[in-house]
Simulated assay, not measured.
Amino acid sequence: MEQEPDIFDRMAAQAAGVEASPLLSKEELPALSAKAFEAQNPSQTPSNVRQALQFLLAHGWLESAVKPKLFGLVAAHTTLLDALLEPLDLRVVVDDVRGLAFLAVVPGYAGDDTDESEQDDWTHPLMKRQRLTLEQSLLLALLRREFLQREQESGTGAVVRVTVDSLLPQLETYLGSTGSDMQERKRLGQLLENLRTHGMVTEVDAQDCITIRPMIVHLLNPENLQTLLLRLREVAEQGSAAKPEGTP
């Protein structure tokens, strides 16, 4: 005698929109249910929005000057993108005025169940903390100041380009002179290249200029600047304590 479908078979068949039939095996019913679900629930994420999200996940940020269409999609679908990123503890930040969009870790991700020592070593699986040396951080602060000054003069969103030569005396003020123009320029070039890999500046062009990217304002926020200032004071105090008595 042929066995009646059990309760699980009937539930699967109902979800698939078909009547339970003794001719359908238990292996066929779940597969049929999945196909019916896919047919009734097509992807709600447009392909162009998926492309924009994939670009953000691959690069971390994008500028309207370089990717205008993708930036427009991100700016128009921020709520949808935030919902898609929620399981990853990420969100999208859009700076409409400067034409910048970037990924950020949601507030409180690392601070709820970890102590201070664990937070110092924290890295998000997709968004690792950027570790900069003191010299790199100092140059970053100088570039940020230059960027904001130019914006005050020309308006927010203006393209900010500076010459490499104009940065040399500013850096020497804080780091001191090596006594060799070639060595100082090489030091600055290495620092700029490191910041370029972090997306803060462009590479040096044929006119010996760099463009400061707007991401610099968001990366180096007031809290980070305060931390840098405290660190510089510590270094200055250590240098003064190491000098022999009676030396200037």
Rank of each mutant, 00 (worst) to 15 (best):
P214Y: 02
R50P: 02
T227Y: 03
Q54P: 00
P22F: 04
M182G: 03
E116N: 03
P222M: 09
Q136N: 14
R98I: 02
P87R: 02
Q152R: 13
T45W: 08
P214G: 04
V49D: 04
E4F: 01
L53V: 07
G157Y: 10
S64F: 03
V235R: 15
E2C: 03
E19P: 06
P5N: 00
A141V: 04
L192Q: 06
L142R: 07
S21L: 10
A52G: 14
R213N: 11
G108E: 08
Q207D: 13
L143F: 07
N194G: 11
L219E: 00
P169L: 07
A58E: 10
M215G: 00
V18Q: 03
V97A: 09
L132S: 01
T79R: 15
M182I: 05
A39I: 05
G246N: 10
T173E: 14
D181P: 13
Q149T: 06
T178G: 08
P248C: 10
L73W: 14
L132H: 01
E184M: 12
T202L: 08
K26W: 00
D120L: 11
A141S: 15
S177F: 06
K35R: 15
V160T: 07
V106S: 03
V97P: 13
T173L: 10
D115G: 09
K26S: 12
F102P: 02
Q44F: 11
L143I: 05
L62T: 00
P107S: 07
M215R: 04
A58H: 07
F147L: 14
T227F: 04
L228G: 13
D95Y: 05
A158V: 02
T211P: 02
